[in-house]
Each structure stands twice: as structure tokens, then as C-alpha cells.
């Protein structure tokens, strides 16, 4: 089995990527090829990147063909039968849950809820590498993955940033009650840069839970000038 390093550094990736994408000035490409001749692991990494790049191109190409022509792979009829049954069950479950739960307050929650967009992810941040990796997952809407990374980091040292984004990951996964507990921790820190956001999302969770008066009180605690706060308060009055 060949041994590969677990991860390429940003600089290594950038260099190989520019070579593989034919985006390297001629002289630099000549030097790079010369280095490849004497460096077998670099040759191997280039070969891997060439395959991965080809795989992404093919994935995009065949997806575009599927969109033009419908699915390209044959699926046995019995699988269509199972899929249809599952779809029918899903429709019935959604219909039942809609019929039971959604009221005016939850409509307001849906109208005002939007996932927090997350923080920018810098290229070389060795001190916060894991946090940024979690942020990439978060931005990919892979909230469970982001939550797992950040929860592990919280064991090494808790910060308001970690608490807030774990709360957001949970909320985006539909775990409103657990998210609310974490947001309460931020609400105890008025100096936190996430304080106002914590109030906003707490109010929305209270709205979702039908706690109208509590939601109003939480919104009234907000000191910022976000017009949505007043707009939502007006609708609740």
C-alpha cells in the first residue's frame, strides 16, 4: 500500500492544480516537470489530481446530460415500485404532520427564519484549521458533520463562537430545543458579538413553540436596529 500524506497544504495544492489545469506559465511548468522527474511522490500527487479533476468534469458532464434526457442508468421496475411506495408514505406523513401542527406562529417562524450564513473561511489558518473545516461543512449544509467537528473542539476549550455555531447547526437540523439551550448560554454574555443573533434565533424558536409572549419579550431585549425585529414585533401585537 502506498503512503500518502493525509492532506496537501494550500500551497502544494495550488501548485499542482495550476499545473494540472494548464494554468502555469511555461517556464514554471518546465521547472515543475523537471522536479517531477526526480520526485516520485510529486508525480503520484499529480496523477491523483489529474484523475480527480477528470472525475469532477465527468460528474458535471453526465449530470448535464441527465438533465437534458432524464436519468441515464437503468433501474429495475421493482425499484420504481419501492420508490413510489416510499414517496407515497412520505406524502402521507407530511400531510399528517401539517394537519396537526402548523399554526399562525409557525408560519411566522417559517417566514422569518433563515439559516445564519456562517463565517468566512480563510485559506491558511493553521490555528483554527478544524473550526474552518467545520465551517466548510456548515456552508455545504452538512450540519451534522459541522456539529460533530465543533462539538469535539468545544471539549478542548469553549468559546461563544463555537457555542453559537453548534446552536445554529442544531437549529438547521430541526433540533430547536437543544439549540435554544445553547443560545441561552450566549444570552448570558451581552458583550458577545453573537448576543443579538442569539436573541433573534431564541425569539424565533419561542415562536415556533407557540410561546408568543416570551418571543415578544425576547425581541424587546434586542438593541440593534434590524428592521425585521420591529416588523416581527408589529405582527405579534
Amino acid at each position: 500500500m502506498k503512503k500518502h500524506k493525509p492532506e496537501l497544504s494550500p500551497e502544494e495544492f495550488d501548485e499542482i492544480d495550476r499545473y494540472v489545469s494548464d494554468d502555469m506559465p511555461e517556464q514554471e511548468a518546465v521547472d515543475f516537470r523537471r522536479e517531477m522527474e526526480t520526485n516520485p511522490s510529486l508525480r503520484e500527487e499529480v496523477a491523483i489530481q489529474q484523475k480527480l479533476m477528470a472525475a469532477t468534469e465527468l460528474d458535471s458532464f453526465f449530470k448535464s446530460k441527465e438533465i437534458q434526457q432524464g436519468s441515464s442508468r437503468s433501474i429495475p421496475l421493482w425499484k420504481y415500485g419501492i420508490a413510489a411506495s416510499l414517496a407515497l408514505i412520505a406524502v402521507v406523513l407530511v400531510w399528517l404532520s401539517l394537519g396537526r401542527g402548523i399554526g399562525e406562529d409557525e408560519d411566522l417562524f417559517s417566514a422569518y427564519y433563515y439559516p445564519d450564513p456562517g463565517l468566512p473561511v480563510p485559506m491558511s489558518s493553521t490555528d483554527s484549521y478544524e473550526f474552518d473545516d467545520g465551517m466548510v461543512s456548515y456552508k455545504e449544509e452538512a450540519y451534522a458533520e459541522a456539529e460533530a467537528v465543533w462539538t469535539e473542539l468545544r471539549r478542548l476549550g469553549d468559546t461563544d463562537t463555537l457555542v453559537f455555531y453548534v446552536a445554529m447547526a442544531k437549529l438547521n437540523r430541526g433540533q430547536a430545543a437543544e439549540s435554544s439551550v445553547l443560545l441561552d448560554q450566549i444570552r448570558l454574555q451581552p458583550e458577545s458579538e453573537f448576543y443579538e443573533k442569539a436573541l433573534w434565533y431564541t425569539a424565533l424558536i419561542q415562536l415556533k413553540e407557540g410561546k408568543l409572549e416570551e418571543a415578544k419579550a425576547t425581541l424587546l431585549e434586542m438593541r440593534g436596529d434590524d428592521p425585521r425585529t420591529q416588523e416581527l414585533l408589529d405582527k405579534l401585537r
Partner: peptide, 27 residues
Amino acid sequence: GVTDQSVKTMKYRCMNRLRAAYLQLIN
């Protein structure tokens, strides 16, 4: 709707993930 730097980082991290998945499957 993100910065150039964020996109560059995401490309890097996405390709590193793809590479990790590929190497794991190969192994």
C-alpha cells in the same frame, strides 16, 4: 455571494476531501 478568498479555500478543501475519500477507498 462570498469573498474570493472563501471560494479559493472552499475549492482547496473540497478537493482535499475528494482526495481523502479516493485514497481511503483505494486503501
